[in-house]
């Protein structure tokens, strides 16, 4: 797959996903397709010529020329508030990609797959859930998804539906507020929670962890403490602005 330079893209759909996030579908003529887990750089140009570039993970995979992004608003940011509150179908932006060959899942591996998401870190893992399901590998994939409250879970309905239909099994972790009747602990993802939800290190899973930097560091350290070899842990961290 070739990346080349900036391609014009057009927003074709914008749907609220949580109180602070929107799912955008962007049509990119000539898009060469992307693997699950890859991302794009998005470039916005203001009327005065000022340009801003940000990286966003792709929630979709495959050959479609319409890609799906899910953007969580960072209140003090200068790009995400525009994408979450203002951008409308028909608006244009520039897209470079697909980017990244490291945080990528491709079909064919023998090992089970453990996905661990913090907040909007779910986006590239969602592409992996969809890709694994489509090739009949959902049974070897588990997802552990940490969110502040049920309302903050991007893709909540789709994940629940897929789990109920025999797809990728999801374990939820709520760090601030759980649904009514929730029996498990509420709070930061810890070693005990990872041990009970994740594939045992003896199964030699490949583990993908995506979320804010602090979350990823915390989870990666816990995984190593539980016996997962560092070389089997792939990480992607995002920050603010």
């Amino acid at each position: 797959m070739t990346v080349g330079g900036w391609r014009p893209g057009r927003v074709v759909e914008a749907v609220a996903a949580t109180p602070s996030a929107r799912i955008l579908r962007v049509q990119v003529p000539g898009w060469p397709g992307n693997d699950a887990g890859q991302h794009v750089d998005i470039r916005l140009t203001a009327e005065d010529g000022y340009q801003a570039v940000r990286s966003y993970s792709i929630g979709s995979y495959g050959t479609s020329e319409t890609i799906e992004l899910a953007v969580d608003e960072i209140p003090e940011g200068e790009v995400s508030p525009y994408l979450v509150e203002d951008v409308q179908p028909g608006d244009e932006l520039e897209v470079k990609g697909p980017l990244g060959g490291y945080f990528v899942w491709r079909p064919g591996g023998e090992a089970p797959v453990q996905l661990i998401a913090g907040g909007s870190g779910i986006v590239p893992l969602m592409a992996m859930v969809r890709a694994a399901t489509d090739v009949g590998a959902a049974g070897s994939v588990r997802l552990l998804y940490s969110v502040r409250t049920p309302r903050d879970a991007i893709y909540r309905d789709e994940l629940a539906r897929r789990g109920d239909d025999g797809g990728v099994a999801v374990t939820w972790r709520y760090t601030r507020e759980a649904p009514a009747g929730w029996a498990d602990r509420v709070g930061r993802l810890d070693e005990a929670a990872i041990r009970s939800a994740a594939w045992d290190p003896g199964r030699e899973p490949i583990v993908y962890v995506c979320g804010p930097t602090g979350f990823v560091e915390h989870v990666a350290d816990a995984l190593v403490a539980l016996g997962h070899p560092p070389a089997r842990i792939r990480t992607e961290r995002f920050g603010g602005a």
Partner: peptide
């Protein structure tokens, strides 16, 4: 500046 990791520098 935003503190991320090398994935974000891919472009």
């Amino acid at each position: 500046a935003s503190i991320v990791d090398g994935n974000a520098a891919a472009g």
